[in-house]
Amino acid sequence: MVKHTINEELCKGCGLCVRACPKKILRISKGKLNSKGYHPAEMMDIDSCIACAACARTCPDVAIHIEKE
């Protein structure tokens, strides 16, 4: 079981995590906006997440936190 949290207030919607994810399960949200007006990234399919943390390591704003059972 993986706990994958994206701090939506820190995220600037740059998309680097989306590109880095080997399982292609992250995307930039459409409807949502954070207080700075960015569309934060969001997890589409947590069950497929292998907690490799490629997303977290490429995030320029250290917005991703990952825990695993």
Partner: peptide
């Protein structure tokens, strides 16, 4: 909070 532009690599380097 980092002031860098979206996707700027400075944040990665800092970390």
């Amino acid at each position: 909070v980092f002031h860098y532009c979206p996707g700027c690599n400075h944040g990665i380097a800092h970390r």
